[in-house]
Design a protein around this nucleic acid. Structure first.
Lengths: 341, 341
DNA sequence: GAAAGTGCCGAAAAGGCTTTCTGTGACCGT
DNA sequence: ACGGTCACAGAAAGCCTTTTCGGCACTTTC
């Protein structure tokens, strides 16, 4: 308000300042700093020193305006407090290699209007590409084909098969879970999953059944669906134990459900893993490590998902678009709830 | 490579195109679209229609270059997978009102080098300000006073008292926790906290002791410190119950610890809340709601923290800087683990 | 009926940078 | 000594938008 003192901080040093200090033109200064060839070594040195002395940092805005590339991508999520976007974001950050690219993060909170708004805001800031992260694995509407930048869908695939989507192989995850249980000698395996309206729970169950069939086995009782909560796990496990006391393993739809299941087992006097093996999905560390014993779980490799999505986005930006759904495999993390010791 | 077909997407429509289609100059087009006064209504309408027809979206880069404001802030965190940055980010997004401001998110992962790098990258993209989120409540090094944009520290305060830091009032949180327990008729209160090297655990304990003193009470036994884990909670509670079976409440340093404590209580045949009340800190919903009964906890109001940080940052950008540490109060969320029913 | 005022529009500059193109002097070959 | 390279530096255009300023055609005022 009162004076124009620039907040006592180094104000706006531009290439012009550098050039003046080095006694050259801006053109030469630019070329010197960017390693262009048409500059004498001695001149370049002078410019570089001037730049350092002024701690010059080029204005990326101006640069982007010219280059028509901002080195910026938008990450549009619907799951900010959730489990998926954050590891995916970290993977993406890794893949981008923080040098060159920065990530704009927006949360649409499941609202299509807000999503449109964010897309528009991101585009007007001229992001080079978009990653869209869904909150569940079910297909989601495409942003459309008319966007001026490439888009990669992560976790939740796009409904449009011409888009590129990177997802988790939930069927394979179900298979590998059963494979693991069978490999530890279990044969009377039950399944308590989560919310039946989620594609993830259906797919995991489907994979588990397929694997059981491959091993010549059948599920103990029916697969049970409820919600992704501990209390559902407890309730379902209690019922299950009453009806099928012979079971020797319970495959749970998520780590949270598994925690509830383990609680119920303990209350029923069953021991884990000697008597009954338990495993979950997601490998959410705060749940797996707090369990007694620590919980075996299928890791969804979200960081890798983020990395792959970022790589694909890069490729598309560089003119190598792909389309279709790419499913990434998962990984069983073995802990005490399935193997003793 | 081969052809110049613009990826089958609407390529780069500029104000120039709009102006040409509307039959006016770019200057007029700009004024028309920005609601400036010096344009006839009829002309304005023509421009607006042309803009819509071409689905024109102004290039924020050019605009920012001119205005020397980007409508962009950087959020620098060290806790991406953790508990704090995300709600803070959401609060900040809220406060900014997604219209005008977008957030660059960077994770320094506790590495000072990486942090410097990110700061530089954000500054070269000309963010209008920075929010720095720490991973624990202990003071952290300042980014320095020479930055060209305002900085607000959130959760972890800056070591430099001339910086502005927004933190949680952990002492007050400890006080209000004890106040709640006392108000439900408890008088033999024990405290099992987390990692003693964290300022948060010390401050919460300190607040709890002060409140007890105010009520003419003393802690049952000593405050016990360990780690922020369920297993520590179980172990500590078992010991505690052996030494002080008379206790009627356990205040836990975090919700995770509280979960462990509740497990131990159940195994010792103690009931919650009738026999022993339990409460935690953080109000991490996945822990509080899974507990039996649901866990009373002190909510740290992270979203509000984010909102306030964003508001202060805005004020600073607009030339109203503050400094010092601003502590925000917390809020007890009462559930079944302290009151029956 | 001339001077002043009004309403609307466009030319041009600005913002910081990169790139192309032009220019200059040094050096080469003949 | 002269045309031709070559190495290097600078002028200027361009990216897209906003804003200032001047201009133009009117209308109002005495």
């Amino acid at each position: 308000m009162n004076n124009a003192v620039p907040s006592s901080a180094s104000r706006k040093v531009t290439l012009n300042d550098v050039a003046r200090l080095a006694g050259v033109s801006v053109a030469t200064a630019s070329k010197a700093l960017n390693g262009r060839k048409q500059v004498r070594a001695e001149t370049r040195a002078r410019v570089v020193e001037a730049a350092e002395q002024l701690s010059f940092s080029p204005n990326e805005l101006a640069r982007s305006l010219l280059a028509d590339r901002t080195g910026t991508v938008g990450l549009l999520t619907n799951d900010l407090e959730g489990r998926f976007s954050i590891p995916i974001l970290m993977g993406a950050e890794d893949a981008f290699g923080a040098d060159s690219v920065a990530v704009f993060l927006c949360d649409a909170r499941g609202d299509a209007i807000r999503e449109k708004h964010h897309v528009h805001a991101l585009l007007s800031r001229r992001v080079d590409g978009l990653i869209v992260v869904g909150s569940r694995t079910d297909p989601r509407p495409s942003l459309g084909r008319e966007l001026p930048v490439p888009v990669v869908y992560a976790y939740a695939p796009s409904e449009d098969p011409d888009d590129l989507s990177i997802v988790v192989d939930n069927v394979g995850a179900g298979r590998s879970a059963v494979d693991h249980l069978v490999s530890t000698g279990r044969s009377r395996i039950a399944h308590i999953s989560g919310d039946p309206t989620y594609g993830a729970s259906q797919e995991r169950a489907q994979g588990a059944l397929a694997a059981l069939a491959d091993h010549g086995l059948e599920l103990v009782g029916e697969a049970r669906f409820g919600s992704w909560t501990e209390s559902w796990g407890r309730a379902a496990a209690s019922m299950l134990l009453g009806q099928h006391p012979e079971l020797d393993a319970i495959l749970c739809g998520s780590d949270q459900v598994a925690r509830g299941v383990m609680d119920a087992l303990r209350e029923h006097g069953r021991t884990v893993p000697d008597d009954v093996a338990v495993m979950g999905f997601d490998n959410w560390e705060i749940f797996t490590s707090g369990a007694r014993p620590a919980l075996t779980s299928v890791d969804m490799n979200f960081e890798r998902l983020g990395r792959v999505a970022a790589q694909r986005l890069f490729a598309a930006i560089d003119g190598e678009p792909r389309s279709g759904v790419e499913a990434l495999d998962t990984r069983v993390v073995i802990r005490g709830s399935t193997v003793p010791g």
